[in-house]
Design a protein around this nucleic acid. Structure first.
Length: 256
DNA sequence: ATGGTCGGGAGCCGA
């Protein structure tokens, strides 16, 4: 099973890119972030006509997440139980016996800001939520835009990024906590031969200059990573006109 | 040159 993640930065705007990329058969289950629309505004017909099933946790203007799958989608769960949050950032479902959690982690804006404090509270809730998911689901993947570059090599320029937002020690400690629950970071387990980045700012021709960060991650339980075959960053959609600022990341697992 | 680019949606907010 191939499980992926892609921050599309508006599902409605990116629909042609998404459909064209899906037509190349890159993935079986895909978590989407920043769909930026309500559930009733999701272009459901076009995706279903292309053979995809879809569950969403949408929000007007900001945030919003979804899971796309070829196989039937079961036991859908939205948001994190016990964490009151007006922002739609989590959706989970079981597909082919694998629990897939799709997250859009808070950006945080700047270290020390109110949004950063919200990010810290949110990541603490995520740790508790994922802890419960690990107990309940031996086959577990937690995919998404984490808005955390886990290590110094995950930024193009440490002088610019180290210690700042997406790269601060408290954020990285939260990321390590998730790995400490027993999950593996698939891209770190299989570093790609090309760029290791998954996001590039729209400004300053950052993509062309590979001035990026690795902030989109596929984390998976040992039952999955024991069969990890390949993890790929799909640069093709990032090269198109009017792209998302993120590239899809896909991990392929052999299921026993 | 003290910004730079997107998306959403109607003025700026968020990334």
């Amino acid at each position: 099973m191939r499980i992926g993640t892609w921050n599309v930065n508006s599902l409605r705007v990116r629909l042609p890119h998404l459909l064209d990329w899906l037509a190349t058969d890159p993935v079986d289950v895909l978590g989407l972030q920043e769909i930026k629309c309500l559930d009733e505004q999701v272009p459901r017909e076009a995706l279903e006509a292309a053979g995809w099933k879809l569950v969403t946790n949408g929000q007007k203007t900001y945030n919003g997440v979804a899971i796309l799958s070829r196989l039937p989608i079961e036991d859908v769960s939205r948001d994190m139980p016990g964490f009151a949050d007006e922002q739609k950032r989590v959706i989970a479902a079981t597909i082919g016996g694998v629990r897939v959690v799709c997250v859009y982690v808070v950006n945080g804006q700047a270290v020390g800001s109110e949004k950063y404090e919200y990010k810290m509270r949110w990541l603490a809730a995520l740790r508790d939520y994922v802890f419960n998911q690990v107990q309940a689901h031996p086959r577990l993947a937690v995919v998404g835009d984490y808005n955390i570059a886990p290590a110094i090599e995950d930024t193009h320029d440490p002088a610019v990024w180290e210690g700042g937002i997406l790269c601060s020690e408290p954020e990285r400690a939260h990321f390590r906590d998730l790995l400490g629950l027993g999950l593996g970071d698939c891209l770190a387990l299989q570093p790609p031969t090309g760029t290791r980045f998954t996001w590039w700012d729209y400004r300053q021709a950052a993509f062309r200059r590979d001035m990026g960060l690795r902030i989109d991650h596929v984390l998976a339980s040992p039952a999955l990573t024991s069969g990890l075959r390949e993890t790929r960053i799909h640069l093709e959609p990032r090269r198109l006109e009017k792209p998302s600022d993120h590239a899809p990341v896909v991990a392929s697992f052999a299921l026993a």
